[in-house]
Design a protein around this nucleic acid. Structure first.
Lengths: 144, 144
DNA sequence: AACCTTTACTTGTTTTTTGCAAGTAAAAAC
DNA sequence: GTTTTTACTTGCAAAAAACAAGTAAAGGTT
């Protein structure tokens, strides 16, 4: 899978890597919902197709957004962890959360949660990033 | 054009509205590059096709991201202005700029500009938003 | 040891979206 | 009155996504 880069405008570049229907939703599952396996992603309510999921995971690993590791307790299962390139997307995705919650009349985000998130935005971002970094480090020893 | 909403997760919702290959690039042109007309958008280096541009502009107007107005000095030309729903995307797009500039080895963004943007992020965001709001207001009197 | 389940995919086909080339139509300029 | 500008539309080809089904290996169950 080759990703065509339309230009070196930073917004365009980001969209070329991640601006399809599913890549950012997989990253959302990992970064904000503690999901890590193929089956976890399949179970998400947006219902990604198996072939699309497989091809997106492959691309995200190839492009260093995700790191794929065997579950040491179950040789047939793999876990996907956020690499630094993905962890650095947390500020942008946080702004998407704020925007989406503000303009979706039927948003799943509770009002008080949103309010807290907006006032303590930096804290929320840094806390989420620290969480992902420690997850990544704690599994450093695993193979694959 | 009907937009299917996959879920009311705010990230998913945002992507359902804007997560195609071109919508956010049109908004970038308006929000960050002072572009406002059909011809301006066609001239962008990413080379959108005319039919796609027309259909995206229609959708963005229908969904209240953009306001379409006649050029009062040239009856055949239209201008597209960012509505509040688009102006509120500036924080998210700013994070995309920062991310894209950081991870694209060949980014068009100069290092010192990026550094200034990161340290004075809030100021950059608010300045860009204020600019767009005044543009919108100053054209309030135009018809269409 | 044989069978069933879990897990992570792949394959083949249909549908939807995008891309490309050309054409239209009305206002404006010359 | 002819050409140019501006904003599109149309028709067809190519690419991407969606859907349904199948594969294959590891693990668990009897």
């Amino acid at each position: 899978m080759k990703t065509e880069i339309r230009s070196h405008c930073p917004i365009s570049y980001t969209l070329d890597l991640l601006g399809d229907k599913w890549s950012l939703l997989i990253l959302r599952d990992i970064l904000f919902k503690s999901k890590n396996s193929y089956q976890d992603f399949l179970d998400s309510e947006e219902r990604i197709a198996t072939n699309i999921l497989a091809s997106r995971l492959k691309k995200l690993v190839e492009q260093d957004f995700l790191i794929k590791k065997r579950n040491p307790n179950n040789k047939k299962q793999f876990f996907y962890f956020a690499a630094p390139k993905a962890i650095e997307l947390i500020p942008a995705l946080t702004e998407f959360i704020i925007w989406g919650a503000k303009f979706d009349q039927h948003t799943a985000v509770p009002k008080d949660f949103l309010l807290k998130m907006e006032t303590d935005k930096l804290q929320f971002v840094e806390h989420t990033q620290a969480q992902q970094k420690s997850l990544l480090n704690s599994n450093d020893s695993y193979s694959d």
